Simulated scan of single mutants.
Amino acid sequence: MTRFDGLPEFVAARQQALMRTAYLLTGDGDLAEDLVQSALVKVAARWGRVAAAGDPEAYVRKILYHEHISWWRRRGRHRDRPTADPPEPEGRPDFADGMVSAILLRQALGRLAPRQRAVIVLRFYEDRSEAETAALLGCSVGTVKSQTHRALSRLRTLEPGLADLLTDSETEPTGVAR
């Protein structure tokens, strides 16, 4: 038995899910790949203990979120990102409306603070409970609740066109593609 037993199988099975989450956190495909790779390198060094603990995906995801926040802190908190307002829809709605909403949501997520973005991704994209989100981020359930409230308020302010996707209660936004 080597110290990497099961790691290649884990990576093969969970890489796409980790990439989707990393993409939602970073908003960039190349950065998402780098983030997943960085997290997996850190996990590889501890793989024997991580696998023995029984839930390697939770450990990898925790590293993923913390690594993203570390990157954000090193780059600086304020980055100007040019954004273009999408054209107003004309005529009857069609499948493009969903794409516009998805683009608007991605842009708005990119303008949230990393912790707020992580909370939104964990709670609504990955459908995690408040307790699971708190455990993954290493904070209290109260912090998760307040960060969720602030993030949803900020999303509503940043992109009023998404109001129909974001419910008035602090429950799952409707229409968010998984």
Rank of each mutant, 00 (worst) to 15 (best):
P56T: 07
E172R: 15
T148G: 02
S129I: 06
R77W: 10
A13M: 09
G48D: 11
Y59A: 14
L165P: 00
R150A: 11
R123W: 13
H68Y: 12
S169N: 13
S140F: 02
I69P: 00
L40C: 10
L64F: 04
L155N: 05
L137G: 03
V119M: 03
V141F: 06
S101K: 09
R150G: 02
E170H: 03
L64E: 06
D168P: 02
T21E: 11
F4L: 15
L155H: 05
M1G: 14
A52F: 02
A177L: 13
L104P: 00
R123Y: 13
K145N: 11
P89D: 07
R178P: 09
V36T: 01
A45F: 09
D97P: 00
R73D: 08
L25M: 14
Y59F: 14
P82L: 10
D127T: 07
R61Q: 15
G27D: 04
M99L: 15
E90S: 12
Q147I: 03
L158A: 06
A135R: 15
R61H: 07
A163F: 01
G142R: 09
F4P: 02
Q15F: 13
R92C: 08
A134P: 07
L166D: 02
M19R: 08
E90A: 14
T21G: 06
H78Q: 09
G76S: 01
K62N: 12
F10Y: 10
A51R: 15
S70Q: 15
E9K: 05
L7M: 15
S153M: 03
K62H: 08
A39E: 10
F4S: 13
L155D: 00
I63S: 07
Y65T: 06
P56F: 12
A12V: 02
S169G: 13
G48Q: 14
P93K: 02
T26A: 14
H78A: 05
L24I: 01
S101N: 06
S70Y: 11
